[in-house]
Amino acid sequence: MARTKPNRKTHRDDAQHVSFLRHRNFRYLKLAMLISIVAIIAYFFVDPTPRHNGGTWYGYTLGTIGAGLIVWLTLLGIRKRAITQGAWSLKAWTSAHVYLGLSLLVIATLHTGFQFGWNVHTLAYTLMMIVIISGAFGIYFYSNVPRMMSENRADNTQQEMIAELNAIDAQLEDAARPLSAQYVSEVQRAINDTKITGGLFTRLSGRVNKCASMRALSRLRAVTEGSTTSVDEAGEDLGSVISILDRKSVMLNRVRRHIRYKTLLELWLYVHVPFTIFLLGALTAHILSVFFYW
């Protein structure tokens, strides 16, 4: 059985890292621009009576294209779980998904004829806009965040970050042993009560209010700076605890930034995916209602 040889050039392009945004020299961006411009020009040349809306022949045409596009765009969820190469590679598909998805902004908006109301039709449009805008956020974060993320984590894997924090805690534990009770309780809290992160907004902010480690660090620092007797008393032991806490706070900041970046990369999908399915439901209702009251 003869196998088709993969095109060498294509294969090389795919092998090298070319972003899905730049895939084939923006092939799908160009296609999407073409579709949008044609749709806009036609909108002004077509003269519907009495006005533009989803119910004119042009409205139905745009609506059909739009609904087809939405279904196809949704199929990326299925397509991405299968791996192929070449023109129908996942990269090509993703590139088309992004640009044709953006062209839907034009197609669907023209389909509405700018007729909006409190009804299922506008609901479907609104959901579609939410999906597209969340997708646009996704693209933005995908193209900016990974670079910042790798700069931030400096070759550490997430497991290494966990191990590092644990190691710092163990060192703290050891180093704090000679200290008197008042300092030990601070250190204990730093070890046991430090919240690495919290809810969605804490994750997005990249910092934690009332972090026990940070507080321990600042309090112990205040001791060394404020009172010479205490320093003398605790001596080098306190100094080493402070330096370990200092390392911990640096590490915590890095971990929290990492969590922030990860959240940015993930959050849009928590909107994009469920709202896509929501949109499919509303779109079905929209189409059904139009034909039901034909």
Partner: peptide, 26 residues
């Protein structure tokens, strides 16, 4: 720690919920 899995309702469950909402309500 690093993903939103335990922070937000799952994508699949939200999708189901919203779909039921859309189909029932609309």
């Amino acid at each position: 720690l690093f993903s939103l899995k335990k922070t937000l309702p799952g994508k699949r469950s939200s999708a189901w919920f919203l779909t039921v909402l859309a189909v029932a309500g609309s």
